[in-house]
Design a protein around this nucleic acid. Sequence first.
DNA 1: CTGAAAGCGCTAACAC
DNA 2: GTGTTAGCGCTTTCAG
Lengths: 367, 367
Amino acid sequence: MGKIPTVYDVATRAGVSIATVSRVFSRPESVKEETRRRVLESVDALGYVPSGAARGLAARRTGVLGLFFPGLDAMDDIADIPFDDGDALTGSATIVRDVAGAVDTRPLNLYFDEVLRGSELEAWRSGFVLLVGVGRGDTAHDTVRDMAGRVDGLVVLAGSASEDELLQLARRIPVVVMAGPSRGDELDHVSVSNAEGMNALVTHLIVDLGVNDIAYVAGSTDSPDDEERWRGFRSALHAAGIEAPAGPALRGDFTREGGRRAGRELLSREHLPRAVVCANDQMALGVIDTARIAGLEVPTQLIVTGFDGIDAGRLSTPRLTTVRQPMERLGRAAVQVLVRRLSEPERSAMSVRLPVEVILRESSEPA
Amino acid sequence: MGKIPTVYDVATRAGVSIATVSRVFSRPESVKEETRRRVLESVDALGYVPSGAARGLAARRTGVLGLFFPGLDAMDDIADIPFDDGDALTGSATIVRDVAGAVDTRPLNLYFDEVLRGSELEAWRSGFVLLVGVGRGDTAHDTVRDMAGRVDGLVVLAGSASEDELLQLARRIPVVVMAGPSRGDELDHVSVSNAEGMNALVTHLIVDLGVNDIAYVAGSTDSPDDEERWRGFRSALHAAGIEAPAGPALRGDFTREGGRRAGRELLSREHLPRAVVCANDQMALGVIDTARIAGLEVPTQLIVTGFDGIDAGRLSTPRLTTVRQPMERLGRAAVQVLVRRLSEPERSAMSVRLPVEVILRESSEPA
DNA sequence: CTGAAAGCGCTAACAC
DNA sequence: GTGTTAGCGCTTTCAG
């Protein structure tokens, strides 16, 4: 790779000082046209690329924003994925016949995908690049810290790091918490209207559709959103004067399979409710799977609703009524808040709550 | 934010030298138990987080890998997405009735999502974090360079930067090119078996299904994969002794709408082929849309196939026959090659070609 | 408009 | 084991 050119090399070749080279990059207009031209010519000729590390150290800002997620990919598919050099060199294709009903791949990753996309977009708009990290197992701790050391600000998904850890990191750089329950502390926070969305959906079922016999399928208790959605469900029942149980009777784990199980349990009971409201789309799709197998027609015999607004719900039959979270906007908002915080360090903590949309489709409304 | 603690602060408080503090992080076992404890105690008390910039500068390695994509999101949805502080503080939810047939969101982003996920996973396994950047418009140039200055190695999706640019950057750090045509130069390259996959699919149509009247819908000419897929199509016809046109007669732009247009053009002709093979799934779904509107039954009257293996193709009716690209593996392989290159700088350029799978579903095989 | 010089916070020999 | 001491490659006053 030879020797990597530095400012000194460029300066020497262009017959200027390193300060001038630096200026050409930071405030080009402050350098005389002719001088600038010479510098750029050298940059090009030498293939000079400024060292981000050196810049960051000297300027005390890196131009990088961090995005940290909890790692919920299955740890078992993390095995090595070897490619023999020989084997890999020749292209190949095998033929597979896909029997219907294959399991759904990519669990709830879609959530991250969209948040990430929004974050990246917004970071770019503000002139930053994005460092992404996933906290997996016991390396999570080190990963965030490492990231915190390299960025100007950090967006952290609720639940991916401990509260103490975050507060600690916040002493060094601004930290924005994304999703999860609202918080009164010193960290900026961005979330969506989980409770309000669920409330609006359930209220629609009760008021507009005249349904008053509704079962609820909750998700994992460790999810920050799960609790809020249940609260929204409960408050809608309350408002309608319907007695609400103290806690959800059915609980899945946010997966489609979990929804299928919950569905089976529901069907095994003596009484079938008119509607089943699920804490997310995956589980709702699972409940529909079970209903179909049992010969129950959705929505005429059983109304099913989800939450999130994933694509699979738009493509299913019947299409799924749901509450759409603005995931991409969530990512964008988080970065916006972060960037703003960067310029106004003293401002008091912000808490942004994004609106959601209840999307009515055929799983609740007969066509 | 107060003063940010440095190694010096930690060293002073623990009564050791900065070298020892540094060692506690890099080779903990080389420091006496008791000393290490004192240092860690100080780290904790002060909330010390090592500066990535300083580390990177001194060690000449950053522990960061870069992933650079071309930006193909629509530039128009990049407008500001303002949130008034007041408005945003109160949660809210609106109700929307989703009429069927809404346009498909998220064009071919899914490709990136998966590649990104694979890359991140592999980077994590190797102890790196990932810096992601998207080249949008005329900032693309600056963005890659900026990234190149901050990472130990870079994975670049073919077409997102000019050849010259890449070669230039490769003088500073290892660069792995992902996708696109195979290349004989000095850059490492990772791709999938586009031609082989298309060939296998078309051969199946001809040999197993007895189809010999096949139309082809190509994608944008600027896609590096488009050409290869066409080649695979052509070679399959050749092998079967069927005359193949010099170039694709129909061309979409890889979008569903493009597929619909191509479908309409096809149907307007005097002769209807038995099958239409598309350069990607989105277009295939678009062709199916058109066929349905025209009252043509797929696959009995018209066979339609795609390429990529996106989820929408698994969820469509009929389900789409396609060639699945191992996108996540592609991302993983690219990072693996990069990491390997990092440890063996002198090794000659590698070219890895990943296998694909032809997935047979109801859009080509009557149930 | 340009140059000189002082760091930025850490790692990595090299001594002790 | 632990301390000393050079830098790493830039940015940023401060002069001129």
